[in-house]
Design a protein around this nucleic acid. Structure first.
Lengths: 349, 349
DNA sequence: ACGTGGCATTGCCACGTTGCAAACTGCAGT
DNA sequence: ACTGCAGTTTGCAACGTGGCAATGCCACGT
C-alpha cells in the first residue's frame, strides 16, 4: 500500500486494479482523507482557481454577472476569487500583476481604467479574458455584447415611439475602456439617421446619483428632452427618480431606457425598458475562453459576441397603460449570437 | 547568494544585512520574481484565502455585504473565494466540507438551510464564522444584528405613525436559520404591546416577486392592512410595486418598511424606509473574528452584535410630502454596538 | 595575538503530490 | 521450466518555501 497507489486512487487514475481501488477508497472514506490542494497546486502548477476582477461587487450588474461567473466556474470544477478595483487604473494594474501567476490559473477582468493595450503591456503570464466593450481585437481574449448595435437599437425604439428630443446619458470621456464610446456611437448613428441632433451628457460614474444629477440638470435647461437613453440601468433608475421627483410622468413626459437589465429595473415603477445582455452567456463564454486558453496558451486571442435583447417595458411605452404585472416578456427579439473563431472545447475529466 | 537568503529577503525577515537585502531586492524587482503562493501554502499551511459562502450573489444585500467583506479582507492581506448555495442545505453542507481545510484558511458563511447545530456537526476543522441571525451561542463564532430589537423598532415606528393594521411579510418556517423567527418575534412584541393583533405572512424566498405576490394577496382579502413590514428590502420593493400597480398610494394608503438598506431602496419611488444593518461593521467584525480564530483555534466561540439604524424615508412617512432628494438622513439613531467578549486584536505585520 | 560573542549566511530537510521509470506480479506461449 | 508480456505496484525525485541548526564572518575586549 504505497503512497503512490493511494494517490492514483484519489486522482482517479486507471492504473489501479479494481480490488485495490475499492480497498483504498474505503479507507479514504473512513478517514475522511482529502487530497491537499496546496501540494497539488505546487506540483501541478494548477490551483483550480480563477480570479474575477471587477470594479465593484455592490453594483447590481456586476453582482449578477459575478453570480453567473461563479456558477459557470463551479460547473467546470473551478472556484472564483473576487477582487475589486473601484474602476481605478492603478488597482486594475496592481491586481492583474499581483494575482496573476500566483494563486490563480487565469483571470476574468472587467477593466474600466485601463485600455486593452495597457493590460496587454502588463507583465505576468497567466491567461486573461476581458469582459466588456473595449476594443481588444488581437490583443486579448474578450467577451462582449455589441454595444454599438444595442445602443442604436434602443435609440431606434425611442424614435419609433415618437420621441424626438432624445439625450444620451453616460458618456465617460475620462475612462479608457471604450464602453461609453461604443454606446454613444450607436446612439449617434440612430439619431443622425433620423435627421436629429444627438446630444450626450457625461457622467463621472455610473451610479444612480449620477443619473439623477444628470437628469435634474437636464430638466433645468430650457430645452427639455422627451427621452433619455442611459448607458446603465443604475443611471436610468436615478433618472427615473429625478424625473418623478420633478413631477414628471414617466413615460408620458419623459421616456427612460437603460442598459444592463438588472433586477431592480424590472421592479421599478415604472418598469424600466433596457438593453439586456445575456449575462449567463457572457459568463459561459468567458469561462470557455479562459479554460481553453489555460489549456493552450499560444492560441491567438479571440473575441466572442454575446447575445443581447431590448426589453421594452413601461418606462418607454408610447401611450399604453402600465400592465399589471412586471414580466420579462421579450421585446424586440434579436439574439445576434456571433462567435468569431470560437475555439474548440477540450473535454474535461 | 543562497536560495535561503533570497527567501529571507522575500519574506521580509530581519536576519539579512541591509546591503544584501538591497542587492537581492534589486534582482527581485528586475526579474519580477514573486514568491510562489502554492509553496508557501504547502509549507506554512496558510493560503491567505478565506471562503465566503452565501445564498446568492445576485441578491443586492449579499452583493453589498460581499463588497464589504472583500474590502475588509484586502485590508488584512487576504483574498476571498466566493461560493453560492442558493440557500440549499445540501449545498451549504457540501461547500462547508469541501472548501474547508482545502484551499482556504477559514470560512465566512451565511447559512439559510442549515442550523448552527447542523453546521457545528459537519466534519472538517477549519474556522467558520457565521453571518446572520441564527442562534449560534456557544457553538460557532457569529456576527449579527439584533434582528428582534430592530424589528420591534421598525414596528414601533409604524405604530407611532398612526398605523394600526400592520402585517409582517417574510416569515420562512421552512428554513432552519432563525432569521425570520427573530424578526417576527420583535414584530409581535411591538404589536402585542400596542394591544394589536399581529399578523404574519410567510414567503418561500425573499425576492421581489415574493413580496409582490404576498401584498397582492393581502390586498384581495377583506381586511386591508395600512402598513406592511417586510423582512427584506427585496420583499419591500416587490410590495411597493404591487401596491402601486393596485393603484394604492404609498405611504398614504399603505406604508412599507423593509430590512437591509440596499441601495435600490434609497432610490425607489417612494424611497424605502428600512432597517439598516451596518454592513461594513459586520464585515469588519467577521474578519476580525475569523483571523483571531485562525490564530487561536481553541478560543471559545464569540458573538458580535453589529449596529443597525432605522432609516426613515418616504415609504412610511405619516403625512409629509416626499422630500425632493433621497438622502440617507439617519432616522432613529440607535447604534447599539454590543460586543460580547470581543477578542483581542492581534497585531499584523 | 587570541578568544568570545553576535550577527549574517547557508545547508538540510519536509510539507503532499504526481511524472517517470523501475520493479514486480501472474499468466500465456514456446 | 523459461521467456515475454501486460497489467499493477512501487521508489525516487522535485515543485518552492521556511524552520532549524550549523557554519562563517567580523569586531571587540583582554
Amino acid at each position: 500500500m504505497s503512497v503512490r497507489t493511494v494517490s492514483n486512487v484519489a486522482a482517479g487514475s486507471d492504473l489501479v486494479a479494481a480490488a485495490t481501488r475499492e480497498r483504498v477508497q474505503r479507507v479514504i472514506d473512513e478517514l475522511g482523507y482529502r487530497p491537499n490542494a496546496a501540494a497539488r497546486h505546487l506540483r501541478g502548477g494548477r490551483s483550480g482557481l480563477i480570479g474575477l476582477v471587477l470594479p465593484e461587487l455592490s453594483s447590481p450588474y456586476f453582482a449578477e454577472l459575478a453570480d453567473h461567473v461563479v456558477r459557470a466556474a463551479a460547473d467546470r470544477g473551478r472556484m472564483v476569487l473576487v477582487q475589486q478595483t473601484d474602476g481605478e487604473a492603478e488597482q486594475e494594474r496592481r491586481l492583474l500583476t499581483g494575482v496573476r501567476g500566483q494563486s490563480v490559473d487565469g483571470v476574468l477582468m472587467s477593466p474600466w481604467g485601463l485600455s486593452p493595450a495597457d493590460l496587454r503591456a502588463e507583465p505576468g503570464s497567466s491567461p486573461v479574458v476581458l469582459l466588456g466593450e473595449q476594443d481588444a481585437e488581437g490583443l486579448l481574449d474578450h467577451v462582449t455584447v455589441d454595444g454599438e448595435a444595442a445602443a442604436r437599437e434602443a435609440t431606434q425604439h425611442l424614435l419609433a415611439a415618437g420621441r424626438t428630443s432624445i439625450v444620451a446619458v453616460g458618456d465617460q470621456p475620462h475612462l479608457g475602456n471604450g464602453t461609453a464610446e461604443r454606446r454613444a456611437a450607436g446612439y449617434r448613428a440612430a439619431m443622425t439617421a433620423a435627421g436629429l441632433e444627438p446630444r450626450t451628457v457625461a457622467v463621472r460614474r455610473l451610479h444612480r446619483s449620477d443619473g439623477a444629477d444628470a437628469v435634474r440638470a437636464l430638466l433645468e435647461r430650457p430645452q427639455r428632452p422627451d427621452a433619455v437613453f442611459c448607458f446603465s440601468d443604475q443611471l436610468a433608475l436615478g433618472a427615473l427618480r429625478a424625473a418623478m421627483t420633478a413631477g414628471l410622468r414617466v413615460p408620458d413626459d419623459l421616456a427612460v431606457v437603460g442598459f444592463d437589465d438588472v433586477e431592480d429595473g424590472r421592479y421599478a415603477t415604472p418598469a424600466l425598458t433596457t438593453v439586456a445582455p445575456d449575462k449567463a452567456a457572457i459568463a459561459e463564454a468567458a469561462l470557455e475562453l479562459l479554460t481553453s486558453r489555460i489549456e493552450s496558451p499560444e492560441r491567438p486571442p479571440q473575441r466572442v459576441l454575446a447575445p443581447y435583447l431590448l426589453r421594452v417595458r413601461e418606462s418607454s411605452a408610447a401611450a399604453t397603460p402600465p400592465d399589471s404585472q412586471p414580466t420579462s416578456r421579450p421585446g424586440t427579439r434579436k439574439p445576434r449570437k456571433v462567435t468569431s473563431r470560437r475555439g474548440t472545447n477540450p473535454s474535461r475529466a
